[in-house]
Amino acid sequence: MASNLAVAVLNGIVWGLIMALIALGLNLIFGLLHIINMAHGALYMLGAVFSWYVIELTGNYWLALCVAPLAVGLIGLALERGLLRTIEDKPLVTIICTFGIMLVLQQLALTYFGGTARRIALPIPGRFPLFDLQYPVMRIVIAAISAAVMVALWLFLNRTRYGLWMRAVVQDREMAVALGIPVHKVYMWTFVLGSVLAAFSGVLAAPIVSVDFMMGREILIMAFIIVIVGGMGNLWGSVITAVVISLIHGVGSIFVVPSTATVFSLGFMILVLLVRPQGLFGE
């Protein structure tokens, strides 16, 4: 039992940190652009798919971790400039539009990458004992990288001029315009940053899960749940929620059937939406 619990807790934290990265990207875009990005899961999937190609070519996972998110960032740039810019002020329209983009990206991945799941070898193959079970070292490394990225994001938002601009736009858009902040540029780079975060978590998750063109569909819903429970626009609420939900899920599934757990957590979500639509950590 002790080993079960230890693995469940450790694993809950690891997954929570990966989920937090995905949710942060989604939430960043929502907080600033008010776009619910249904294509976010597809961008996560593209990150993993691109990393698979980079690894096929070079055999280097760490290179893939740098290159794939940048490539997806370019796609994000094109999407924002080419498609979303004109409809940014209509939230419902953007939902439908990003739903269409999701269909297209998934189908493209299917056409070129194929429908079969592929795997990426663990770049760090070791395991360490944990009571009478074992735990892969790589997962700890992945969690550490996620945490580091979150710290970097915090520094970016709080210590750079762009970060300041972004926070200013979130707080009061009109005022930001009046102050001469290039709001459209801020929108653009925020969307790119969100896409990069999605792709980055895709590359991080790739060695744990397998790379598959459908991998973004279920993750998307999980990310929604985290963003809503944590509070839309509240970035640190997302991080806490991601880790807590992941822990509850991990520990809870020792005791109950997963589909029951899923139904209950979805029910909890509905409750949060009704009672505190601003999220548990929202103001």
Binding site: F224, L266, I270, P277
Partner: peptide, 28 residues
């Protein structure tokens, strides 16, 4: 009864969640 209390994006999400509960129960 529950959903119409919400508007905009929250309404979208809550309807997705109800459908997800339905398909989870249906599949299992």
């Amino acid at each position: 009864f529950f959903s119409v209390r919400l508007t905009g994006i929250h309404f979208v999400i809550i309807t997705i969640i109800f459908a997800l509960i339905g398909s989870t129960v249906g599949e299992t």
